[in-house]
Structures are given as C-alpha cells and as structure tokens.
Write a protein that binds this DNA or RNA. Structure first.
Lengths: 233, 233
DNA sequence: TATCTTAGTTAGGACATATAACAACACAAC
DNA sequence: GTTGTGTTGTTATATGTCCTAACTAAGATA
C-alpha cells in the first residue's frame, strides 16, 4: 500500500470515483423515492455491476445510509459557514438573515437531504458522533454569533426561568459557546426550532396546499427574532 | 350480506377484531423499528397466520400504512377536540394552552404516530383527502378559536404584508375560518409551525442530548404567542 | 516473475411483497 | 337439512431485496 501522502495511486483514484458514483446514484434514488427507495442492488444494476460488488464499498445498506446522512449534515454546515464567510463585514442583522436564508435555500434545493438530516433516521445505522456533533453545531454557532452582535437595545435579554438558564449555560459550556449570555442562547435555540418548524412543513408541501407562500412566513419569523433581540417592537 | 344497520353479524365482528389486531401489531412494529419495520408478513407471523392471509384485509403494505397515517391524523384531531371540549368555559388563554399541551402530550405519548402524520409519508400510498383535510384542519380550528378569543389589547393585530394578507384570507375561506381576522390567522399558523418545530426535534431526542428541557421551550413559545396576541410585552 | 491485495463475478440463504389456486367454513335461501 | 355462495384461510410460486460464501481476474509490489 503506497503512502497516502503521495499522489493517489491508480487504484485509489478508481475507488474514489466509484464511491462518488455510488453516492450520486444513492441520492438520486432517495430524491426520487424517499429513503425507502435506497437499494444497493438497484444502484449496482444502474451502474452496470452485480449486486454484491457494492459490498466492497459499503458494508451494508445501513452504512451507506449513515454515510449519506453524515455527509449531508456536513454539507449543510459547510453551506452555512460559507454564507457566513461571504457575509463578513455586513451588519449583524444582515449576517443573521444571510445565515438563515442559507439554511432555507439548502433545504429547498435538496429537501431529501434536509429530511435525512432532521427526519428520523431509521435504517441509518450508527452515526459517528465525532462528525455529527460538530456538524450539527456549526450552523448554530453562526446564528449565535450574529444574534449576539445585534445591539440588544432595551434590556429584556435575560432568561427569567432559572432552571432553563442553568440548562442553557450547561449546553453552552459543552459546545464552546459559554461566552454568550443566556438570552442569546435561548434566542438561538428558538431561531432554530422556528425555522425548522416552517422548513420541515414546507418541504412536505403543506403550504402550497394552503396557498400560502412560506417564504413570507420565514421572513416574518426572522424579523420577529431580530425585533426580539434588539428590543424593538 | 346483512344490512349494516342491523347488529353486526358474527363474521363482521370477527373481521373487525382481526383488523384491530392487525393495526395493533402494525403500530407496535413501527413504534419499535420505524415505518421501515412495518411488515405484513411479520404481522401475520406474530398473529399466527400465514402471510398472504393479511391480503384479505389490506390490499398492500402501502394501503396498511396509509390507513395508519390517516387514523393517526384523526386521532390527533380527536384528542385536540376532546381537550377543547374539556376546556370549555375556561379563559381563552387557558383554552389555547390546553389545546397546545394536548398536541404535545399526544406527540410524546406516541412519537411514531406524530412522525407518521408530519413526517414524509413515503411508502404510504395515497391518503384520502376526504379524511385527511378535515383531520388536518380540526386542531387548527381549535387554536384559531382560542387565539381569536384572547383580548387583542393594543392593536398590532393586522398583517402588514398585503400579499400575505390576501393569501391568509384565501386559506381561511377555503377552510371555513373566514370569520377570523388576518392577524389571528397568521398567529395560528405561526403557533403551529413553532410548536411543530420544537416537537419534531424533541421526539428525535436532540434536546435530551443538549441537556435542555423542551417543555420549558414549549411553554416559553406559548407565552410569547399569547403576549403577541394580547399586545402585552 | 511470483506473491499479495483488491475488485469484481456467480451461487445461494433468509425474507419481503404479492398473486394464484385451492380448501374449509359461515351464512342465506330453498 | 341441503345446497350454493362468498369469506377467510391455506400452500405454492414469481420476483426482488440484503447479505455471505466461494471463486476469478486484475492491479500492485517484492
């Protein structure tokens, strides 16, 4: 086995290529028929290979699924990070809007991936916490930073419930966000649950059915978060 | 075939009993292993029957799944209606709290059912709109009624965005809720998305993982909805 | 060149959905 | 009661998964 530091060998290149092709087909299957439609045999057939061949690349259907989930988690985090990078120098409020819009854009561009990340992950074996936990936290970190930088005009920033305040503190300490005050932490969490509430319903198409544009709901919620943070009314 | 108006025949009783037993096993399977784990053959074996026997009761796995989804929809609606009935005579604010708490209790008691209703319904064939649409709307109706009855103290009740206002109006007309003003409609929708955001994440266990009590988040959101409606701050 | 590793193949077991053909029983009509 | 019909079950079978085992071909390396 050649040192992986050197240029990739022919075999390594081919393997990487095959792996990529497998994932592509896998996403296509899921996009088309949902997680249920993911089939190693189906992918193999689509790639012109025999079924068992794929087991050289993934130990099981579950492992492939877990890979897709983990990858999607990280892709979302990367996307939000990239948006945050792009937004450097803008106002805190603008940075918050850009970050949250990035989440929505990502979700709408690939709803099946959003479902993989936030839906119940049945049949996706174990997810590697070493990769999932950071990926799950990075977007939150961006949101917290932006929220925190918004001028908290007239007070009201604190969390009155002492138990909740302590829980928030504990969470922040575990995730390297202890520098934020509880009000920001709670608002960050709230931002996340509110956005997710809209997005997860939107990608199921329930707003289309109602004739309501979820974009407007989403923006209204963002406006309210900002108002809540800045003490405006 | 005896008239279904008369007392149910022996055959009809047995059939109903078998159907109930099938559904029970089906829910147990889903509760244990997710929608993927639903298996006609498995149910049959658990009931001491041969696989194909179940096809006398459900034409396909998808049809069984669709039945479970529809049934769960209606069960949630019934639960909220029952809570609303129980809460008659209480203050509008209390009625709102009781209704929303009923949703959360229902979701926590049977998360797999909540997922069936609000998750992506892959592999659950067609859902009958004649049953789904009313069931989906009944809880919203309860929420709107309660919200509407809360004193809207200092104005701010209207929806400033004219497009959104028109969309809300259209939705309300299609669902027999045209008597509510746009502010209430928007707040009802917002209540729904916010509650769903928390619940759908809660049942995936992400708050436990963070060491945060979602009950407190839920109540905080309810408080804010009420404050928003009543103009309090 | 000879050997080891990797990537593919076919064969086959365990199970799932689903259909077809058949047996046993309940029920209604005579 | 006997007869005929519809319902509920059975077994057998086709098809399609996941996945393992055993084998082959080809690349990488000594």
């Amino acid at each position: 086995m050649p040192a992986s530091a050197t240029s990739p060998s022919r075999r390594e290149r081919l393997r990487a290529q095959t792996l990529a092709e497998i994932r592509e087909h896998a996403y296509a299957q899921i996009a088309h028929g949902g997680p249920t439609a993911l089939s190693l045999n189906g992918i193999a057939k689509a790639m012109g290979m025999s079924g068992p061949a794929l087991y050289r690349y993934f130990a099981s259907r579950d492992e492939l699924m877990a890979t897709l989930v983990t990858e999607s988690y990280e892709d979302l985090a990367d996307t939000v990070d990239a948006a945050a990078e792009q937004a450097r120098g803008r106002s805190a409020e603008q940075r918050l809007r850009i970050a949250l819009d990035a989440v929505r854009d990502w979700a709408l561009k690939a709803p099946y991936r959003y479902r993989l990340v936030f839906g119940s992950t049945y049949g996706s074996g174990e997810l590697d916490p070493e990769r999932i936990i950071p990926a799950a936290h990075r977007p939150m970190s961006v949101i917290l930073a932006a929220l925190s930088d918004i001028d908290a005009g007239s007070g009201q920033g604190t969390v009155s419930d002492p138990v909740l305040r302590r829980q928030l503190k504990g969470w922040a300490e575990n995730t390297n966000e202890a520098h934020h005050d509880p009000g920001v932490l709670l608002l960050g969490l709230t931002a996340w649950t509110r956005m997710h509430g809209i997005l997860s319903l939107e990608i199921e198409g329930i707003f289309t059915q109602m004739g309501i544009d979820p974009e407007r709901l989403y923006q209204a919620e963002i406006n309210q978060l900002i108002a809540q943070r800045s003490g405006r009314r």
